[in-house]
Design a protein around this nucleic acid. Structure first.
Lengths: 320, 320
DNA sequence: AATGAAAATGATAGCGCTAACATTTGTCAA
DNA sequence: TTGACAAATGTTAGCGCTATCATTTTCATT
């Protein structure tokens, strides 16, 4: 019993015995069995993380932040990939909950009803990431996708573009909200046209960005700028415009979303909406750790906001 | 006991009892406790996966393949991020082994001595991915990085380039072997010059690709082509060359490594060495599953090879 | 030195499964 | 119908920890 205490909470054991115990632990190479611990304690050190994609740069940045803050702590990350499917998400939540995790981190606001009820009755902390919205299960950290794309659209209008279009692939709930933000601002400015919105259920790639722009320009040749649902599409759009000899930013403006590192390196550099993905992962894990140590936050929702980064690709009116 | 059997191995139970059991399981929403199972059985359904990076596209493709093949099976993936550090890898191996995993998938050939001895005495299947080499601990699937970069270098020479350079960031062991492959072929052809090799310990980014090319061209202005250690660098190199007004492929050839999807979409499209990352992940997990079901492979090492994909960026001599 | 309270340590039971073996039931040939 | 054997089911013990409570030690205070 004293050994168990020494290993889990050294302060509860006298220095003398602690040293003795540690010496023996080292000599024997003893490592506690987490399964036995989990069984006896009825809980684990596992924090489940469910993301819709492991390949998407956005989520890998978030994961990096999470892993960074988990490293060295007693918390173990268990990663699940829901592949944008609410049903797979539901299964993962079920599997994770059966492991009696200390916490669960999952993406977005749009869980299935069953998932929602599982989460509500779950005996662990729940943290939603990627998005801000009302009614968190417990904790929530992210930003408003609607507002972010509204800001980007306003930027296009301020730069002097008057026939803006929107391209998007795989419309997950967050993408839909971004499209909504675009539509909100464009409609209010009286420059919205449904024929300048091109979407596809296919997963987004750079190549697809080119194809969507080609599609858009054949349907609505008047288009003078596009807001892209993400940076891969924006890069593909840039290449396609270059192949067509379209002058960027004079004849055509391009704005991405997320501000991946390559946006600044491109030629011309590409305007994008910066999102704080690494911070989101870091803060999420830090928050979870605190909550699990009894340090409660003041707010239930943290909004990390976003930042439009204007670059050459939309500098129609004099700008770097 | 019969319930336990029914849930783990339904064939061992009569159809009648099985139905009765399942009905009750459904009604009660019973879910077995994996911790208790692990403790009693002395083993788990966990397959540990250790990768050096969760952000790098290469590894995320591999992970996608692994998750894809794990999905729906009884095997649980537990992901660890060693961040290119042999010490963190060692810690992760220790942590994973304490969980009595069924298998362990890890990257490369270059484990620390301690890690190696842990693995050798481990009571689980070991699968090395990313690279082929001699002396697998158990199973191994990947390709030869030396040969792949040798082929790429030969391609540059065949395209007519005579002053090839090499740029690389963060020289992990695989990158070093790629550089070695470049050097092998370049030296044999009598076109190697150490001044045309530029490396940095910083992690690779698109921006860095541009900086490395700038660096290279200031040190060795005669350089007429580069082999890039990966595609991010190649893309950055392309942008930087465009900014300098260098004609690609006529004045300067660019070849990447891995053939990320964006290489084909770029303008001009960028030559690269295709590696079969998704397949590697899939086959790794499939192989592991088979091995754990007693189906042993014929070989201990599977070489997935590679493929040079010539594109516009190196088409100095008439080519697409 | 005696006292009491806090700190440290120890004894006991049990978490929910499964391995191993024991027993019961079913099946088929003689 | 019986016996022999296989299939199905049941019994028992224990995996390695931790919660809980009991006991012992420590130490400041009188």
């Amino acid at each position: 019993m004293t050994v168990s205490r020494a290993l889990r909470d050294p302060d509860k054991v006298s220095v003398k015995t602690l040293n003795k115990i540690m010496a023996v632990v080292d000599r024997l190479g003893y490592v506690p069995d987490p399964a036995a611990s989990a069984l006896a304690a009825g809980k684990t050190n596992v924090i489940g993380v469910i993301v819709p994609s492991v390949t998407n740069n956005v989520f890998s940045d978030v994961m990096r932040g999470i892993y960074e803050q988990a490293e060295g702590s007693k918390w173990q990350i268990q990663l699940g990939n829901s592949r944008y499917s609410p049903i797979e998400e539901e299964n993962l939540v079920r599997t994770f909950l059966s492991q009696k995790p200390a916490g669960l981190i999952l993406s977005g606001l749009d869980q299935s009803e069953v998932t929602a009820s599982l989460l509500k009755s779950a005996d662990c902390r729940i943290l939603q990431i990627m998005e801000c919205g009302p009614d968190p299960y417990d904790m929530m950290i992210g930003f408003s996708h609607v507002e972010a794309s509204m800001a980007a659209t306003r930027h296009l209008l301020e730069a002097g573009y008057r026939k803006p279009g929107y391209i998007a692939a795989r419309l997950d709930p967050r993408s839909q909200r971004r499209l909504q933000g675009f539509q909100n601002v464009a409609e209010e400015a009286g420059v919205f046209s449904a024929s300048r919105v091109v979407t596809t259920p296919r997963p987004s790639t750079v190549t697809l960005g080119g194809e969507l722009v080609a599609d858009l320009l054949s349907k609505a040749p008047e288009t003078d700028a596009i807001l892209c649902n993400n940076d891969d599409l924006a890069l593909g759009a840039l290449f396609e415009c270059q192949r067509r000899g379209l002058k960027i930013p004079e004849e055509f403006g391009i704005c991405g979303f997320n501000d991946l590192e390559m946006m600044a390196a491109a030629n011309p550099s590409i305007t994008s909406v910066r999102t704080f993905r690494l911070d989101m992962g870091r803060e999420a894990m830090r928050w979870m750790r605190n909550a699990l140590s009894g340090i409660e936050p003041e707010e239930q929702v943290i909004d990390l906001s976003y930042q439009v980064i204007p670059r050459q690709s939309t500098a129609r009116r004099a700008r770097g």
